[in-house]
Design a protein around this nucleic acid. Structure first.
Lengths: 351, 351
DNA sequence: ATGAAAGCGCTAACAC
DNA sequence: GTGTTAGCGCTTTCAT
């Protein structure tokens, strides 16, 4: 194999501009102590030759790598990709992360890491050693993994923990699950609903409880009952179906249901259909996450929008700031979600 | 900011094992001329210290970077991510590409490049200079961009061209669009359909024509008419709706329609509903691509499965082989697609 | 404000 | 088989 060398290096630029390597280095890193005339001359050579610094060489010399690593759980991600159920978590991560990285001249590298194995640490350490990223973005369930957090802390790499309320090192960011749940509940209350049920998600994820809390507090504030109105699922379709059957089997059945994610909402839709309950005229349905599928069901689903892209974008920003030693805002950073009204919600039948 | 150095380097391993750097290098690269006892000793030190070679240093020394770059069109990708219509092209690319890369100790880096701008070349050159990947995977419409192909050829980087039949340098891979279209057509013929219409895609993409060709040749082979049975769309929902109206407005309307992608199939579904034509009893519908949405429509759509993951996986494999100087199979490599029967196809009403 | 020299971690080339 | 040397492209000292 032919060895590939850098086509244009800092040497070529220095020679072309008739200055030292160091001066070129100063220009490309936008450092002080370069006269503007000099700077212009060097920049002209850079443009002329089409010079781009090598990340490898930069990293070698002990400087930044301009790489930010985004870590996702391997099993779950591969399962989602294979199932092709329309989950676009990864896409939204890339959307938020890559674009923000590009703004700062960084690059996002997406990696899968196996959470559940006992060698998480080794795996992550290997990835870091190989890539030497300037920062790491953790997503659930890694965000609260003490092994990972400790490792990153020891390596002194700035890292963001998405979906974590903090405690320990790292930059904690959460999407505002509680407010989003409150918003959804408020929407239904405003439509005239009083018996609003909630299908909770897996208790493995802290956000499941945050969502329940939001619903509960809004119900309380409106003086509405919550007893018997929670069913616990685990984010799967099957669990959503079971939860819905439980809720709709109730003698005084709810006129509205909020499901903690889209898969469970989909199940609720199907169960309602089976039972001959029409949506939205006889039952309103709100779903969580706003993944693509909610646009294609019939009726389309009113949904809470999980601000994944925005959150990752903020994470990137904060990592870069942290790396530069800038001051960070108080944490956890709370990212506001959205709410999209579609066809699955309306005033209750006998409001 | 504290400068981060590699925690464990080849030096530490060499010292620990009591050998030279070069011997360690030989072991980690699995090169010949190391006695197995020596190799074991070095490996023990590597494991003990948790050593992982630095990609940057490897690249610096003129060797491989173990990075493979996958390039997608920026505008289109961002539009897809933002629209959240369930397109999982990127996910499938990552699925096929990352897993195959991991098998060989490589890493896939996903990048966006702006096709339509006149500085494609500069942009791509910059990315290559920064990352120095060992290979590049091109997707449409980049695969047939002569500027890009020439650039990569000159840089002597192995590259794959997905969706290109070849001509010029690089490894050409296509999904077997023609066969897939034939398969879909055959499925409908076997069900008893005789008037089978086809909604073609944008002529900007060569695969649009390949799909038409497959349908046409299968129809011919079965002695069935094709005149007046093609409507041209451009892969958008709107164009699909217009095409469907045109086809169903025909006095002797088709009993089945094949749409060149899922968005247009979705439109066909909606138009049929508007016209009071029931699917599948009065009209069979087959869609192309098998993106997530076809699982959620009502009825669910029988669809041709575009083997994106498999194709990217093959591309990675061939790039690595090419880089090692191994012989490659004849091209274009043709990757077989799949076919998934769901609810939208059945025997025609008056068959 | 600019330049020169040293070194980052690794591998290719060559010596032994 | 194994060790030694040089150098990759860049940034960090430290001079000037």
């Amino acid at each position: 194999m032919a060895r590939r060398r850098q086509a244009v290096t800092i040497k070529h630029v220095a020679a072309d501009a008739g200055v030292s390597l160091q001066t070129v280095s100063r220009v490309i890193n936008d450092e002080p102590n370069v006269r503007s005339a000099m700077k212009a001359r060097v920049q002209a050579s850079i443009d002329k030759l089409g010079y781009v610094p090598s990340i490898a060489a930069r990293r070698m010399s002990g400087s930044r790598s301009y790489l930010i690593l985004a870590i996702n759980d391997r099993d779950r991600t591969i399962a989602d990709w294979t199932a092709r159920q329309g989950t676009d978590w990864v896409d939204q991560m890339l959307l938020g992360g890559m674009l923000k990285c590009a703004e700062y001249g960084y690059r996002l590298i997406f990696e899968l890491v196996d959470t559940h194995s006992d060698h998480v640490e080794r795996e992550l350490r290997a990835t870091i050693a190989a890539l030497q990223p300037d920062g790491v973005i953790l997503t659930p369930p890694h965000s609260d993994n003490p092994l990972i957090v400790r490792l990153l802390e020891r390596q002194r790499i700035p890292f963001a923990r998405i979906g974590s309320r903090g405690g320990g090192a790292g930059i904690a960011l959460v999407m505002d699950d509680e407010s989003m749940a409150r918003h959804a509940t408020r929407h239904l209350i405003d439509l005239g609903h009083r018996r609003i049920a909630f299908i909770a998600g897996s208790s493995e994820y802290p956000l499941s409880q945050w969502r329940v809390d939001g619903w509960e507090s809004e119900m309380r504030a409106a003086g509405l009952p919550t007893a018997g109105l929670v069913a616990r699922g685990d984010f799967t379709y099957e669990s959503g179906a079971a939860a819905t059957r439980q809720l709709l089997g109730h003698p005084d059945r709810p006129s509205a249901i909020i499901a903690s994610n889209d898969q469970m909402a989909l199940a609720a839709l199907e169960v309602a259909r089976e039972l001959g309950i029409e949506i939205p005229s006889q039952l309103s349905l709100v779903s969580f996450d706003n993944t693509p599928i909610v646009r294609f069901t019939q009726p389309t689903l009113t949904a809470v929008d999980q601000p994944v892209a925005e959150t990752v974008s903020r994470a990137v920003e904060m990592i870069i700031k942290a790396q530069r030693g800038e001051k960070l805002p108080p944490q956890p950073v709370i990212v506001a979600g959205g709410f999209v009204e579609r066809e699955s919600t309306s005033a209750p039948a006998h409001g």
